[in-house]
Computed example of a mutant assay.
Amino acid sequence: MKNISMKVNPLYSDMDMSIQFHFEFSKGDCKVGEAMVSTYAMTNQVLYRKSQGGTSTSIEKCAVIDRFDVVTELGEASMKKLRYFLKVIGMKEVHCGYEMNRESVGN
């Protein structure tokens, strides 16, 4: 996974009021694939958390992988890197919004 680079380009969609991410995967100087992911609020419910610094709010979010097109032998490592990024930015759930034509990489 360390030998694959991932470039993230965030975009905002006015149409469906979501944040979309365009990912580019590279190995060395060669582009090996790309992906497109949309993020959405799961509910209109706001979560309030109390801590020593005060009260913070958050909305649970999920991600939908709209497109994932990566060279077959690097698909699994690229998907792991993508899912790790989505977890770090707070996506509670990740769904696939497409038929995967690559080797199975699991959810």
Score class of each variant (00 low, 15 high):
M1T: 05
M1Y: 01
K2C: 00
S5F: 14
M6L: 15
K7L: 10
V8F: 10
N9I: 14
P10K: 07
L11Y: 10
Y12D: 03
M15P: 00
D16F: 14
M17F: 00
M17Y: 07
S18H: 00
S18K: 02
I19H: 06
I19D: 11
I19F: 14
F21A: 08
H22G: 08
H22A: 12
H22K: 15
F25L: 13
F25C: 09
S26I: 03
K27A: 03
D29E: 07
C30L: 15
V32R: 03
G33Q: 11
E34L: 10
M36V: 13
V37H: 14
S38Y: 09
S38R: 11
T39P: 12
Y40G: 13
Y40Q: 05
T43E: 11
N44M: 08
N44H: 13
Q45T: 14
Q45R: 15
L47I: 05
L47V: 02
K50H: 13
S51C: 09
G53D: 13
G54E: 08
T55A: 10
E60G: 00
E60A: 07
A63Q: 10
A63W: 12
I65R: 01
D66P: 00
D66G: 11
R67W: 02
R67G: 01
T72G: 10
E73I: 11
L74G: 07
S78Y: 02
M79K: 04
R83F: 08
R83G: 07
R83I: 08
Y84W: 04
F85G: 03
K87V: 04
V88L: 05
I89Q: 07
G90E: 10
K92C: 08
E93F: 15
E93C: 11
V94K: 00
V94L: 03
H95R: 13
C96R: 14
Y98V: 00
Y98C: 02
E99M: 12
M100F: 14
N101V: 04
V105A: 05
N107A: 10
N107L: 13
